[in-house]
Write a protein that binds this DNA or RNA. Structure first.
Lengths: 113, 113
DNA sequence: TTCATAATAAACCGAACGGTTGACAATGAC
DNA sequence: GTCATTGTCAACCGTTCGGTTTATTATGAA
């Protein structure tokens, strides 16, 4: 079922642990253990999250001795962002509408201020 | 597990049927039946997808007679886009690096062109 | 060589997912 | 009224998900 690239990326992003790992990787390369550390979870559990992110193409790893050095790969994030950007005009319309409501409320509340 | 707003939104987006429904709604309001029509799926199945999108705040509905009129609510999409936008500098770095590689390759291939 | 550390793999568990069928409620058409 | 249409709900089914425990593979350190 999870086949498309957007499927796997959005699915990977739909979990707070995994988003936290990405945030951690934004600060620099990390080992799997370092990625796991902030979360109340076994290393094996964290390792599975890392694999989900890797399968989505969101990170890459190289082995250095017995540790795996993980780095962020932002390409798929850009792809997802591009997809979302498509909808900008729709939320702009909404925000305009909201703004208009706010303005008309202001007038009602203080017609002379 | 699906509690956070980003969780529910990204999860909702991680399915091609649901993304297709959003695309359909971009063209205008639709009934549940109209949303279901393009997909090889029972109406009940499609109705569940609509509910997932609704729970994520991505659409709203009003009843008109016996049909439910569904409309796109892009606010949560904007929120998700804002989250993704945070990563721009990372993929820009990557693209810059790629660009540099391409340039250095060009030089090697045709040092005098 | 022996022991500790980093990480994955495999088996398992309960919950959630994506889908179906069948029953139901509400509305519209006749 | 009766009948058809629109949609949900509840139950079920097989698969995936997020997590554990246990075992195993590599590597580093003594």
């Amino acid at each position: 079922m999870v086949d498309n690239r957007l499927d796997t990326v959005f699915h990977a992003l739909a979990d707070p642990t995994r988003r936290g790992m990405l945030a951690s990787l934004a600060l620099g390369e990390k080992s799997v253990g370092e990625l796991a550390e902030p979360f109340a979870m076994t290393l094996a559990g964290a390792s599975k999250h890392v694999k989900v992110l890797e399968d989505a193409g969101l990170l890459s790893r190289r082995k250095a001795g017995r540790t795996h050095v993980i780095r962020l790969e932002a390409g798929p994030l850009a792809e997802a962002e591009r997809w979302l950007k498509q909808w900008e005009k729709f939320w702009n319309v909404r925000l305009d509408r909201l703004q208009a409501l706010v303005e008309s409320d202001k007038k009602k509340e203080s017609p002379n201020g």
